[in-house]
Design a protein around this nucleic acid. Sequence first.
DNA 1: CGTTGGCACTCTCATGTCGAGAGTGCCAAT
DNA 2: ATTGGCACTCTCGACATGAGAGTGCCAACG
Lengths: 339, 339
Amino acid sequence: MTVTDRRAGILGLVVREYVETAAPVGSRTIHEKYRVPASPATIRHEMQALEEEGLLRQPHTSAGRVPSDEGYRFFVSSLMGQVELDQTEKATIRHQFFQAPPELDEWVDLAAVLLSRSLGLLAIVAPPRAARLQVRHLELIALNDLLALLVVVMREARVLKQLVALESALDQPELSSLAQRLNERVSGMSASDLRGTADPDDPTESAVLQTLRRLLEEESAREVEARIEGWTGVLAQPEFQADYTRVLDIVSVVDRPGVERLVTAGARDVGGVSVLIGDENQATELRDCSVVVAPYGDGSGVSGFVGVIGPTRMRYAQGVASVRYLSGLLQEMMERVYG
Amino acid sequence: MTVTDRRAGILGLVVREYVETAAPVGSRTIHEKYRVPASPATIRHEMQALEEEGLLRQPHTSAGRVPSDEGYRFFVSSLMGQVELDQTEKATIRHQFFQAPPELDEWVDLAAVLLSRSLGLLAIVAPPRAARLQVRHLELIALNDLLALLVVVMREARVLKQLVALESALDQPELSSLAQRLNERVSGMSASDLRGTADPDDPTESAVLQTLRRLLEEESAREVEARIEGWTGVLAQPEFQADYTRVLDIVSVVDRPGVERLVTAGARDVGGVSVLIGDENQATELRDCSVVVAPYGDGSGVSGFVGVIGPTRMRYAQGVASVRYLSGLLQEMMERVYG
DNA sequence: CGTTGGCACTCTCATGTCGAGAGTGCCAAT
DNA sequence: ATTGGCACTCTCGACATGAGAGTGCCAACG
């Protein structure tokens, strides 16, 4: 028993029909709606074979068939091919990115919104995170007598800030010249480079440097804040109305920090885009969900990801195409501006 | 027919019991569990009166009673009194705020997390927004030959950034001196003050000033980004399992921009804290929900808010107490650092 | 041997019935 | 005004029933 061409074709149709209607697919539907040149009886035969192969399931005797996780996997790996968004769609998306303010955060936002809108799924987009945080420039701004604001611009044009308690009262010109002196020393440095650079005779300087080091360390320990968008769409999917525990599952997984691990681990590649179907997910809460995710970054250790989460019954082709295009576009936008 | 003391007491008990159990409350429960010195029959009489008064409802003949929106309103306005968190709870919260990095965003996060955890409701906390955006300091950092990063520190120590396309190639020292010159001119200015300040003979300077003005205008037009936390808790409330459309309602309202309008409009005051019960909400999607919200800010036109959203069956006393304490605490933290 | 129509079989789903349980509304007595 | 008694109403779960959908299998056909 093996997966012949016709069987594969029927599997594809079942996936397509089920994704669209969310109801088990019967042999007559395949025969009539898709004009397969074979009688319902024959199609039943083939479906039986596909079930023995583990690619289809029956919710119960005498219901139609539903794709199993393996069925979706087969569809994604062997049937749907290399999908691409069509040109007009790409152009529309591209246009919106060039309309937006040239800010990484804006692009991340935009990507998440577009993704969730077009697919009706939950979109998760994380900005890239530098593997090694490197200082480009720092500035000190006086807030009041004993409090200054330390503003740090990182290599990738990200801006961090932190309050510094000053040892002695300094006015803005004094702070500026201190900042200028420090800039010459710390430019290009990362947290570990900063150890022992402080001049022990200058308490203000060491206060600033210590704050800077703490800031960098905290920043690199911080969870990436991913942008999550599209609850409305995904919770309107019929699978969630039937079984409320699935809502709690998906919400509890996504609503807590550390989403990126779920999305990054154990992914199989499909041309840069990974698809995780049902049980292939690490998190047991996602056993009825699928994840489509792709990394992006400037190649120098700065990488984020863009992905979608939804029920296993999702439009994989469009999902993969959209995720691929948006990850590429985000990468391109970044290179154009920060490269 | 009027609301006597005993009736008010019974109403309070019904609210309390219903909030706890989520099941309609019968006369025997009130009699036995709360040891009310009156027989179930008498209590039924009183409940009937309360129903005629519009403060209680029956889901159907011969179920127990459930508070109506008006019943909750009566409870909140006349019965629960001025509630406060107890001292140890206050101390614990306070401690966590002083542990956190001294950053407004961190406090907003922390407030949202604490609020949603302790109440099991959806917490919404928005950082204050200056009525008038005023520049404190600006800086220019070279990214590459024709691209610089404009970093602007606002009066309230917020930091904005924006890329600037340069007219001609400038290195970092040149940019720094330009920034220094500009600082003297624009310090304390807001978007409207910037009109016509540019020197038409210096194209780089006018590019920077124009970018600055655009940045400020966009920033003041931008929706406040509120921190929303606690989907897990609120979606686990029993009301949402019974009726899935309510999940879609609350998600659709909160998941789209402009939450603050829902929360700010038409609020009735309870010592700085507003409570909006059911139909009192502007948004029809929130007709089965209640909102508890309080503004905070430094009094000089900078104001944000902290609030919770949940089913009308919520612990109003704790909600009001927590919201009040956290809004006050946020205000205090801000004044301490930025005042 | 692959394909097809026929047909009995199975399972779900909507509907209806029934009894138990909970709580009320009302009345007559105190 | 308060109370006990009691009939009444409504929900909820269990169970039965019938329609409908779709299958599995078989015998017949090219």
